[in-house]
């Protein structure tokens, strides 16, 4: 240690020696230490770029264009991922299917978050009979296997659904149905997490301090407690996206999901099981993409769990 220490006289003792460190910066420093989370970020960024950038090269018309004369062609220069049973280009379909899959993931989670946070927050903050009522209802939904609920609801809502247009794209209205049923069946876990967080955070002295100040209850819930329970919410929302994409793949694979010609990574697998050996390219590429995105999101979730932990004060 050759560096001379600063002169003592200039040390203002109630000054902080450390440079300012915002919570976001601190979280990023901790996130950075997770190599796998960084890998996950890179993969996710690549996949998003693939779905959005790819749309500039191939048009949606091309993706839905069928030419039975070239059906079941293995990968070639013209069709790098090959063609499916009715001659559609699989590469173009994975691009547009990816957009739908990602959108289903994001919107289903948004719905899950809304219900889960409201139920969990009310239950955790107010307690008493309201908590009892909401939690018994939540448990009632939890004990029914989610996949069973999904199938029943998918069957039930599978009437005539008009096509809709969103962000300049036309697609089957069944996408909305899938989003709603995934959202409606996924929130109980989140609600329980939020409730547990609220229960523990509301016992903190800073909540008592806010009450002593006279801060209104709504502010205590939304400005004090919610921001402090953000870590598990963000983590479970992240994992929720992967979960929703997988669930969509399940139901679509069983033929109850999003209807063609609108592609998703899930419904591209639907017809593929007949060709597991004869036309590997039909399931390999969409399957690989699902695998990659789910893995990437799980890695990121792991990193976020540590990075956002409010109890950890160190970098």
């Amino acid at each position: 240690m050759t560096q001379p220490p600063p002169p003592i006289a200039s040390l203002n003792l109630d000054e902080l020696a450390t440079p300012p460190l915002s919570l976001a910066k601190m979280a990023w420093l901790r996130f950075r230490r997770h190599k796998m989370a960084l890998v996950g970020m890179v993969i996710l960024a690549f996949l998003v770029l693939y779905c959005i950038g790819g749309a500039l090269i191939y048009s949606e018309k091309y993706a839905n264009f069928n030419e039975t004369s070239i059906h079941l062609q293995p990968p070639s220069l013209a069709h790098p991922f090959g063609t499916d049973t009715i001659g559609r280009d699989i590469l173009a379909r994975t691009i547009y299917g990816g957009q739908i899959s990602l959108m289903i993931g994001l919107t289903a989670v948004l719905l899950e978050l809304t219900i889960g946070i409201v139920v969990g927050a009310l239950s955790g903050y107010f307690g008493g009979w309201l908590d009892n009522l909401l939690m018994r209802f939540t448990e009632a939904i939890l004990i029914i296997p989610q996949i069973f609920l999904l199938l029943v609801m998918a069957k039930f809502f599978a009437g005539d659904i008009p096509d809709i247009s969103f962000l300049g794209r036309e697609f089957s209205g069944s996408v909305v149905v899938i989003v709603v049923i995934i959202g409606l069946t996924s929130w109980p876990y989140l609600a329980r997490i939020v409730r547990a967080e609220f229960l523990s955070i509301k016992e903190n002295e800073f909540i008592l301090a806010a009450r002593a100040i006279g801060t209104p209850t709504s502010e205590i819930i939304f400005l004090h407690i919610l921001p402090n329970s953000i870590a598990p919410i963000v983590v479970s929302a992240t994992l929720g996206i992967a979960n929703a994409i997988t669930l969509e793949a399940y139901i679509s694979f069983l033929g109850l999901g999003v209807r063609p010609p609108t592609a998703t990574w899930g419904n591209m697998l639907e017809g593929a099981y007949n060709y597991i050996e004869s036309a590997y390219w039909m399931w390999l590429f969409p399957g690989l993409l699902i695998l990659l995105i789910v893995l990437a999101i799980n890695f990121i979730g792991d990193g976020l769990r540590d990075a956002l932990d409010p109890r950890s004060r160190t970098v």
């Binding site: 903190n204 002295e205 800073f206 008592l208 301090a209 002593a212 006279g214 502010e219 004090h224």
Partner: peptide
């Protein structure tokens, strides 16, 4: 009437800046 608490780690909202914490009573009242 105000209160000062025992645990200096639990009595300040960890997600708020010092400015937000100290100005809360002025804002609320």
């Amino acid at each position: 009437a105000q209160m000062i608490f025992q645990d200096p780690y639990a009595s300040l909202n960890p997600r708020w800046t010092v400015n937000a914490i100290v100005s809360e009573p002025m804002r609320v009242h």
